[in-house]
Each structure stands twice: as structure tokens, then as C-alpha cells.
Amino acid sequence: MNGKKKRLLGDVIFYVFVIGLGILMVYPILWMLSSSLKPATEIFNNAVSLWPSEFVWENYQSGWAGFGGIGFATYFRNSLIVTSTVVIGTMITGSLVAYGFARIDFKMKNVLFACLMATIMLPVQITLIPQYIIFNELDLVNTFVPLMLPGLMGGQPFFIFLMIQFIRGIPRELDEAAIVDGCSKFGIYWRIILPLLKPALVTVALFCFMWTWDDFLAPLIYLNDASIHTVTIALRNFMDVSGGTSWGPLLAMSSLSLLPQLLIFVFFQKYLVQGIATTGLK
């Protein structure tokens, strides 16, 4: 067997392996989509098959109607309000903090940067109780504020670090040229850094959207009234340990809850790959 045939055989084996691995990873999503259209008795009795014996569209109607007089549209609206606010706040405040660390010299810069890096390794469970006490004293529990405020106050440390690395890869000669033209430090950020930061900002927005949209712990802790529950809490409310779980509507609404993330990922995939590939490169 010559070298050309060996390379062809290697490529075939590689693509077969990748396709098989891809099918294995996508199968749970396909199962959820197909099961959302199955009768309740068939979801687990015929779990292997991805093709329903009959299409039960009532699962989507029943799930969208919600429960307790609150439709699922309310939960989608609540999640959209929280997620969009956190994403926009993280992009604005996080990029400002990252610009300060990457481009501006100030006292205790290295100490503060070390503190920033330390908070990345800090488990969220450690700060959960102190944060709850603070928000409870401020009478902000059972509102969206505890979910949105951290994103509006500087964003998450991981996203700030990602943008710092990206900004460090932007030539400083651009800053110097802007200063010569009379541009202020904020002007450099607004006119030079921010437009060039678009790939990193899209990456931050995508990850922030997915993490916030899928967040279950924070809404569970801070939101009490059913009218302000997010999608993740609403999906949990479909499950009743003492009675029975409405698996059809649950899987139907679970499928719909994935739709915003899939659409955003499909439309902004190019910027996501570009942002990850170029972050930290000089």
C-alpha cells in the first residue's frame, strides 16, 4: 500500500470516528426532540426509537399553557429580561475593566489583577450565602436585581480575563497614534479598542448568554413568586415527586428552551471561533 492510499485510509477512519462521535453527542438532543412528540406511554417504553408512532402536538400546547394560570411565555420573557441585561452589562462593564487592566497603569494594578485571577478559582458556593444576606438586607430578594446586578458591576472575572488577553494582542501603536491625534483614554477605548474587540465581545456574549439562560441555582435561591420564575425553574415545576411528571410537556418546553441558544450559536459561530482562536495571540 503506497503513501497516498495510507493517507486516504487514515482520512476515512478519522471522518468515520468523528461522525460517529458527533452522532453520539447529538443523540440526547434528538431523543428529547422526538420524545417531545411521543405519547406519554411511549416515551420510556420505546425510548431507543427516535421516530414516534404518532405525533402528539398537544404536548407543546399543554406545555406552553403552563401551570397555575401562568403561561410559559411569561417564563421565557423573564429569562430573556435577565439574560439580555446580564449579557449587555457584562459586555460593557467587563470591557471597560479589561481595558483598564490591559492599557492603563495605576497603583496596585498587579495586586488587583491577582485578586481578579483568584476570584476565577473561587467556587460560587462560597459567596452564595454572603450575597444572599446582603440582598436580603437590601430587600432585593424575590426580584431580578440579584440575578442582574453582578453582570452590571464588572461582569464575571473569566470574561474580563478573556478580554484582557485579547486587548493585549492589539498593537499599542494604535493607542499612541490616537493620543497624537488628541484622543483621550476613553476615546481610545471607544474608537480603537472596542471596534477591534468585536470577536472577543461576541465570544463573551455567547458564553454569558448560555450560562445565564441555563442558570438554575441563582433563580432558585432568589426568586420565590411563580410569576417571576425563569425557564429553568419552570421546567423543574413540571416534575412532581408525589404525583406524576408530565414528561411530554416537559420535554416539549425543554426543546423550546434550547432554541434561542441554538439560533445564537448558529448565527455567531464564525465570531465565536475567531474570538477563541485569536485571544491571547500577539
Rank of each mutant, 00 (worst) to 15 (best):
S49I: 07
L30M: 12
V26M: 12
Q61Y: 11
L30Y: 08
P52D: 08
P52W: 03
G20T: 07
G20F: 09
Y27Q: 00
Q61E: 14
E58I: 06
F14M: 14
N45P: 06
T41D: 12
A40D: 09
W64S: 01
L33G: 11
L30R: 09
A47I: 11
W51M: 14
L21S: 11
V18H: 04
L50H: 02
Y60H: 05
R7Y: 10
S35F: 12
S49W: 07
S53R: 15
V18R: 06
I70P: 10
P52L: 01
S34E: 12
Q61D: 11
G63W: 06
G20C: 03
R7H: 10
M25E: 08
G10N: 14
V16W: 05
L9Q: 13
E54D: 02
P28V: 01
L50T: 07
S36N: 00
P28A: 02
E54N: 08
V56F: 10
I70W: 09
L9T: 10
G63C: 01
I13Y: 13
I70V: 15
T41L: 10
F44V: 05
L37A: 06
W31L: 08
G22P: 00
G71D: 10
K38R: 04
G71C: 07
P28M: 03
E54S: 14
K38I: 01
S35Y: 10
F67M: 08
G22E: 05
F67W: 04
G22S: 12
A65R: 13
I13D: 06
N59S: 06
G66W: 02
S36V: 01
E54V: 09
D11L: 15
